[in-house]
């Protein structure tokens, strides 16, 4: 069950969640520019040379004139591998709030950089961040989402703005992805005599074979009615209620795909046949012969559904 099902849909405009998000965005925007820590290193030749080399940029102007490539603006104030995150930014709260209501996906959509001048060797830049805007919710190809926009400005020690960058991301709710499950290891063999049962289980029906000629019910099923020799087979959909006729609590040895202790029971159906199944939603010590149970269908993997039995309320 999705953890969101009991919550108001946060993707709907005008819902309380949507209002809360916009209120938070307005509050964060009102903080204005929030200054971060100064760059660890001043603008320097080794980092420029490394950057040019990696980019394959052979423009000699930077090292000749002692200036940094303008697109390096953000590089100077990047966090390192182990350096602690910088000061709390006004963007963080908005991102966390979006994550918390399910907009966990993120993709950058726009990056606009303005260079007032090129930074010079020896200058130590400081970034300042300003939350600009939250737009949404909007339907996008990736799913429902909000566009969050902020601006980072890089200042020289004098306070002069050297460069700024508008950055926009889409925070989206990833569509529920069918994660392929590990195949459940305990699979039934199925043939033309038994397929109707497993087809039924997949459709939420507990099918008990009946003879199309004499009406005799039979489980487990077989190809010929032992009562009248008819091969005309039909089935009746059982009501789904039963009584525990006998049971075991399996402890040892470990069984693939099952977590011990688990309970397996012979369940007597009011229709007059018995069937074996697991007991679920009930601690093993609460199971007893005579307990009223009701069928419940459990998806074991992408293909297999098993009928299990849960306690029935009186």
């Amino acid at each position: 069950m999705s953890p969101d099902t009991d919550r108001a849909d946060p993707g709907k405009p005008g819902t309380s969640t949507d209002r809360d998000l916009h209120e938070l965005a307005v509050k964060q925007a009102a903080l204005g520019q929030v200054r971060g820590a100064a760059a660890v290193d001043p603008v320097n030749v080794p980092m420029i040379r490394h950057w040019l080399d990696a980019m394959g940029d052979t423009n000699p102007v930077y090292l000749d004139q002692g200036i940094a490539p303008p697109a390096m603006a953000q590089v100077w104030t990047m966090q390192g591998v182990r350096r602690a995150a910088g000061q709390h930014s006004p963007v963080d709260d908005v991102m966390s709030a979006l994550d918390a209501v399910g907009f966990t996906g993120v993709v950058a959509t726009n990056c606009e950089q303005v260079y007032h001048r090129y930074a010079r060797l020896g200058e130590r830049l400081t970034s300042a961040i300003r939350f600009d805007d939250l737009a949404g919710p909007k339907r996008t190809a990736l799913g429902e989402g909000y566009f969050a926009t902020w601006t980072i400005t890089w200042h020289a020690e004098s306070g002069e703005a050297v460069a700024e960058m508008m950055f926009r991301v889409l925070k989206f709710r990833p569509p529920p992805r069918a994660v392929p499950r590990e195949p459940y290891p305990l699979r039934p063999a199925v043939n033309r005599d038994t397929a109707f049962f497993w087809d039924g289980v997949r459709q939420g029906e507990l099918r008990v074979q009946s003879c199309a000629d004499c009406g005799e019910l039979r489980h487990p099923p077989g190809p010929i009615c032992p009562h009248c020799r008819s091969a005309n087979r039909a089935y009746r959909i059982a009501g789904g209620e039963g009584t525990v006729y006998s049971y075991v609590v399996h402890h040892h040895p470990p069984v693939p795909g099952r977590e011990p202790p688990f309970v397996v029971a012979v369940v007597a159906l009011p229709e007059g046949v018995r069937i074996v199944g697991g007991i679920v939603d009930c601690p093993p010590e609460a199971v007893g012969i005579g307990m009223a149970v009701v069928v419940t269908y459990r998806q074991m993997d992408d293909e297999l559904v098993l009928p299990m039995w849960a306690p029935r309320e009186p």
Binding site: P70, A71, V107, A108, T109, N110, C111, E112, Q113, V114, Y115, Y118
Partner: peptide
């Protein structure tokens, strides 16, 4: 002299 780079990703 580069003044601005605007990119849509």
């Amino acid at each position: 002299v580069i003044r601005r780079i605007n990119v849509k990703l």
